[in-house]
Amino acid sequence: MDESLKQGWEVPTYTVTELHEKRSRYCVCIFVINEGKKLHKQLERMRPFTGNVDVIIADGGSTDGSVTAEAVGPLGVRTVLGKTGAGKLSAQMRMGFAYALEQGYEGVITIDGNNKDDPDAIPRFAQALDEGYDHVQGSRFIPGGQAENTPAMRWLGIKLVHAPLISLASGVRYTDTTNGFRAYSRRFLVDRRVAPFRDVFSRYELHYYLAIRAPELGFRVVELPVARRYPGTGPVPTKISGMRGNFLVLRTLVEACLHRYHPPTQEQHRA
């Protein structure tokens, strides 16, 4: 990779455990923390659909033994990244993207590691990258998509608040803006006008920012149908809970829509 492209990158420190060599043009990056058997079940489900993409785990600090080489190596994982620096989801994303770009991947498909998403869409995301799309958003709410047991408050929040605000800020219509099943092209991630490798992206900011920034800069954007299934009984699998967590999401959403995370202009740099 051209070292000049990495100038100014802010990436959390992390460890790298490579289990086999790079084999593919694209990679699937799975963001996890203490997902246990849910991750292993998802990796098993993914295997029929990852023949032409490498699988990378971007771990946020799991302590349950679920991401050891012995646990995930037999399930087809190429690399396990272990974040040791500060930050949460967006820091994991910066870590995963940085590694993928340094490894020469032409695109990154992202998916959560809690076994809610149907991995059969992975080849369609890779095809969209082949066709020149730069930001591919998975949606359970378009024809062909499936939303099963979606919590009522989550459904209302997406439909009435989250998707309309990001659609308004970006200038394109999105229907499922909290869905982490996405894909990004290399040219989008390395563009200095995007500048995703900044410490300001620590929690949920980067998901929202990239969805807004891509169409603003004229990158090609598309939604693809995906299936997301919540369990019919028991606790909802989510890292966002309580009043404080939901307030943080709402505040981050508003700040992203007000373009608070855009990189500084040249004039601001000189000032």
Results as ranks from 00 to 15, higher is better:
M1D: 10
M1L: 11
D2M: 06
E3K: 12
S4M: 13
W9G: 05
T13K: 14
T17C: 09
T17Q: 12
L19T: 05
E21W: 01
K22N: 07
K22S: 00
R23W: 06
V28L: 10
V28W: 00
C29A: 14
C29R: 07
I30T: 04
V32P: 04
I33T: 09
Q42G: 08
R45T: 06
R47M: 11
P48H: 00
F49M: 04
T50G: 03
G51Y: 07
G51Q: 14
V53K: 00
V55K: 00
I57R: 01
A58H: 06
D59I: 03
S62P: 02
T63H: 10
D64T: 10
A71C: 09
V72G: 02
V72M: 05
V72H: 04
G73P: 09
G73I: 09
T79S: 08
V80W: 09
G87N: 04
K88G: 01
L89V: 09
S90T: 08
Q92G: 09
M93F: 06
A100V: 08
A100D: 08
G107C: 05
V108I: 15
I109T: 02
D112M: 11
L129E: 06
E131S: 13
Q137F: 12
G138S: 09
P143R: 06
P143C: 04
G144Q: 14
T150G: 00
I158V: 15
A163D: 13
L165F: 13
A169S: 12
V172G: 04
Y174L: 12
Y174F: 15
T175R: 11
D176S: 14
A183P: 10
L189G: 07
D191N: 14
D191L: 05
V194I: 15
F197L: 02
V200D: 10
R203M: 10
Y204T: 12
E205K: 02
E205D: 05
Y209N: 05
P215I: 07
G218H: 06
F219P: 02
E223G: 10
P225T: 00
P225N: 02
V226S: 04
V236L: 08
P237G: 11
G242K: 03
T252G: 13
H259E: 13
H262D: 14
P264W: 08
Q268D: 02
A271V: 04
